[in-house]
Write a protein that binds this DNA or RNA. Structure first.
Length: 893
RNA sequence: GGAGGCUUAGCUCAGCUGGUUCAGAGCACCUGCCUUACAAGCAGGGGGUCACUGGUUCGAAUCCAGUAGCCUCCACCA
């Protein structure tokens, strides 16, 4: 049974009172602020960007699938983009974040097909137009969901610029590009071995094929040698393809098989005669060293077939079932056929043995069907030439990858790039602008009208003109995204395009480096001779605590919307960012969101504190002034750090630096120092300073936590603001100089306070008991700090003495020697002696190591002078401390 | 098979071109506190032979080589 602590009960009651607005809520309630401010920002056009004289800062959002639903990956990705955009906006740049969605050809078509099937409609029974009508209906119904979800996340996109890859203008850009690349000679049509997805019934690019290791059987099949009683044995994982065999291949150097040269063998089950050919491609060590050649169903075999002029027998239908060419098992699915063929062979006594075998099998990225290599007529894009400048951009630093480690695989891919199969046998997508006449001759043209002219110009028949049935690979249109969203493909001289392009940062997942990033660079360069962006920030993969990738099928992915409900959007944003350095996978755990929520609450309560103060007309006290000088310097130091983190795209470090500045420096030290005693008003001058600092730290956090900062920004505590004076456009702090000496001095003060608290803690003395503190020696201006120390360390009497204090606990902070005298029965002389001895021991060991270094001639000779000097300083410091400690020891008696 | 990366506190990770903030941060943990901003908090504290083995160097978490384990990408061994 859960027993309630009194604090829990009190909190419950307080929260209850909060709900009735009886006081400022004790905890931050995100819900209200989130709804209020997002629509406020929208209504007032803060996200809107149009070209002006300011410096542009542009990000194009990686368009999510139009029918997609927000997942953790989107959450991370878009949070990062929003942080970058918001900060740039506050820095006075013209920040433009373009949102949009991708038509995701194969994924969406698969979804629509499945939806229709549920309604009892077979895709085959529909015409192209009928099907597309259903698809558009589906898109209209579900298309907006993910963008709405991004609003909840606070994404400050320019929604008026929202684009969809199948919008009329973007579609036209795709067609124009196809024609341009065709005219430049990069696009060609031909029969090639492609990756066939029998479920989607379409060709796929190499990138869309995922290889997975699969447990298979390796069948050792006997092939009878013609005019002989002998058999040769061939190992295969695909017995169902033997009906398509057109040769047997051996390695010419394989002495075991010299007797086979020039022989003919008989394919089992179908009894077709095929020749034995020789090629060094065959590995003698693998299997039996004998390979069956099936040109229609294996890429290597296809190439062997061309080389040796073999016939091609295609025994598979588009859906992966066997066709008439197979002669047997016609109509059976390839996997069922595999088992049946194996059984038939076994019954015929033609299986030597069956072994377990692991091998890599290709699967469709979208449908997860096993890929079938298939010969077919497809459209291709030549990549070799196009890839060269795209590689150079990254090589010479025009485009930077963050982290850099991804450059290696990018380079490898670019240098070994193969032609890109761009046609897909689908309906949902951009239809290829190629036209055929009744003689199957073809031309590439934008419209039927132009096609007609083209045919005429070539003196060819114009009867029966029809358009190519295929659509283009989705990534063909995504590749244009940074240009097409600004209409830069059709109309490169338009103002938007000239102003926003090249864009600045691209934030995306490394998984689509080749699919998308590389192709954007290629196409961007082909059109503009410019890179589409300058920096590519590659996020990690969001994984669960066990390191598994978050996925629907595993059910291990929390719903981002629910998370935001539970922890507040700001809390979740902080949670996502805290542990996600660029390129590193993020082991997601809700405790990060908890931390983010707690941080929001901390800020909220700092606000409550300041808000609750009464004011009196008065100038600041010495302590308050000293605290303000310190905090100003500390603030400037933090801003410099944060700037550097951002410059290196280390967002989690930038956030952590902000977090510590607020939590530790602002709340725990600064506010505690200036805070007036209970029910005492604060000096008006100090309150102004506090409010000023408060607003400054709020602007620093705003990119990370947009809602709570905007909410507080508008509180009357900070004065009345006119409607447009929002934190979203408030100036982001600039790095200014800071005095290290001030920060260092203050850290000595902090040490003294901590030491006194520690003494109290370790002696079991209540914090309420004030203790006397004596200072023997110090190198700092104590007058400035003594009140602070008295206040925060709860000192009853602070004295300066010119000697050691007998019977007291001593410690050294910086170069200041301090004594705390406790009531006599509290002093354990033995324990003190032991403590001092321990410290002495450490210092002496430290000293000898320093001395050893300094007496090493090679060190003094080779090391940089400042390093040597440092060692000398260390030596002097250690000696001084040792002296003090030894005296303290003697003093203990 | 090729390429790249990782291994630092219980967890997630920083540690730039070798030498004072070289052993860090956040969280978690332990102790004491319902102190009138915050128990989603305050104060204090304890945790690591920097994977292993060698080498280079006056000096190595940091550079080099090897070993082990893990990860990612690429690749047609039937």
């Amino acid at each position: 049974m859960h027993t309630f602590k009194s604090s829990e009960i009190r909190n419950f009651v307080l929260q209850f009172l909060n709900d009735f607005n009886m006081s400022i809520a004790k905890t931050y309630n995100p819900k209200e602020a989130e709804e209020k401010w997002y629509s406020y920002w929208m209504e007032n056009g803060f996200f809107r960007s149009v070209p002006d004289e300011r410096e542009p800062y542009t990000i194009v959002m990686p368009p999510p699938n139009v029918t997609g639903v927000l997942h953790m990956g989107h959450m991370l990705n878009n949070t990062i983009q929003d942080v970058l955009i918001r900060r740039a906006r506050m820095q006075g740049k013209n920040a433009c974040w373009v949102p949009g969605t991708d038509h995701a050809s194969i994924a969406t078509e698969a979804k629509v097909v499945a939806m229709l099937k549920e309604k009892g409609i077979d895709k085959k029974s529909l015409t192209r137009d009928e099907f597309l009508k259903h698809a558009w209906e589906w898109k209209e119904k579900y298309g907006g969901i993910i963008l709405k979800q991004l609003e909840k996340l606070g994404a400050s996109c320019d929604w008026e610029r929202t684009k969809f890859t199948m919008d009329p203008d973007l579609s036209e850009a795709v067609i124009d590009t196809f024609i341009k690349l065709y005219k430049e000679g990069y696009i060609y049509r031909g029969v090639r071995m492609v990756n066939w997805d029998p479920q989607g019934k379409t060709a796929l690019s190499d990138e869309e094929v995922i290889r997975k290791e699969v447990n298979q059987k390796l069948y050792y099949v006997r092939y009878k040698i013609k005019d002989s009683d002998k058999y040769i044995i061939i190992a295969t994982t695909r017995p169902e393809t033997i009906m398509a065999d057109t040769a047997i291949c051996i390695n010419p150097n394989d002495e075991r098989y010299t007797y086979l040269k020039g022989k003919t063998v008989i394919v089992p089950l179908v009894n077709r005669e095929i020749p034995v050919i020789e090629d060094e491609y065959v590995e003698m060590e693998f299997g039996t060293g004998c390979l069956k050649v099936t040109p229609a169903h294996d890429l290597n075999d296809y190439e062997l077939g061309i080389k040796h002029n073999l016939p091609v027998i295609d025994i598979l239908n588009d859906d992966g079932t066997l066709n008439e060419n197979a002669q047997i098992l016609v109509g059976e699915d390839r996997f069922i056929a595999r088992k049946k063929v194996a059984k038939l062979l076994e019954e015929a006594g033609q299986i030597e043995k069956i072994e377990d075998y692991k091998s890599q099998v290709g699967f469709s990225e979208r449908t997860d069907a096993v890929i079938e290599p298939k010969l077919s007529m497809q459209w291709f894009c030549k990549m070799e030439e196009l890839a060269k400048p795209a590689l150079k951009y990254v090589e010479d630093g025009t485009i930077k990858f963050i982290p850099e480690k991804f450059f290696a695989s990018y380079k490898h891919w670019m240098e070994n790039v193969k032609d890109w199969c761009i046609s897909r046998q689908l309906w949902w997508g951009h239809r290829i602008p190629a036209w055929y006449n009744d003689k199957n001759e073809w031309v590439v043209a934008k419209t039927e009208e132009e096609a007609r002219k083209e045919f005429e110009a070539q003196g060819k028949s114009v009867s029966g003109i029809r358009q190519d049935e295929d659509v283009l690979d989705t990534w063909f249109s995504s590749g244009l995204w940074p240009m097409s969203v600004f209409d830069g493909v059709r109309n490169p001289d338009n103002e938007d395009f000239k102003y926003y392009y090249p864009t600045n940062d691209l934030v995306t997942a490394p998984e689509i480096l080749f699919f998308w990033v590389a192709r954007m660079i290629i196409m961007g360069h082909d059109y503009t001779k410019k890179p589409p962006f300058r920096n590519v920030y590659l996020t990690g993969i969001v994984r669960d605590k066990l390191g598994r990738k978050m996925s629907k099928s595993l059910g291990n992915s929390p719903d981002p919307i629910e998370l935001m409900e539970q922890y507040g959007t700001d809390g979740v944003r902080v949670g996502m960012l805290l542990s996600s350095p660029a390129g590193n996978d993020l082991m997601f755990d809700v405790s990060y969101c908890e931390q983010g929520r707690n941080f929001a609450n901390k800020i909220w309560n700092a606000f409550r504190l300041v808000k609750g103060w009464e004011v009196k007309e008065a100038s600041a006290t010495t302590t308050q002034k000293t605290a303000a000088v310190w905090f100003q310097n500390r603030f400037n130091q933090a801003v410099a750090e944060i700037d550097e983190h951002f410059a290196n795209y280390r967002l989690s470090d930038a956030l952590m630096a902000t977090y510590k500045l607020i939590w530790d420096d602002f709340c725990s030290w600064y506010l505690e120092l200036v805070k007036p005693a209970y029910q005492t008003p604060i000096e008006s001058e100090t309150l102004e300073t506090v409010k000023n600092f408060f607003q400054k730290v709020l602007t620093l956090v705003h990119p990370f936590m947009p809602f709570i900062t905007e909410e507080l920004w508008h509180d009357e505590l900070f004065g009345t603001r006119d409607a447009k004076d929002c934190i979203i456009v408030a100036p982001y702090p600039k790095a200014e100089g800071f005095d290290e000496q001030i920060i260092k001095e203050f850290s000595t003060v902090q040490q003294i306070i901590s030491e006194v608290r520690n003494i109290r803690n370790s002696k079991g003395i209540s914090p309420k008991v004030a203790l006397p503190l004596a200072i023997n020696n110090t190198d700092i201006d104590f007058a400035k700090y003594q009140e602070s120390i008295i206040k925060l360390a709860n000192i009853s009497e602070l004295t300066f003495v010119g000697e050691k204090v007998a019977g007291a606990i001593s410690f050294i902070a910086g170069k200041t020697e301090c004594f705390v005298k406790l009531a006599s029965d509290n002093i354990d002389v033995e324990a003190e002696r032991e403590r001092i001895n321990k410290e002495l021991e450490y210092l002496k060991g430290f000293l000898t190591s320093v001395e050893k270094k300094l007496s090493n001639e090679k060190f003094v000779q080779n090391a940089k002078p400042e390093i040597v000097q440092n060692e000398r300083n260390k030596k002097a410091d250690a000696e001084a401390k040792i002296k003090i400690l030894e005296e303290s020891l003697a003093n203990l008696g």
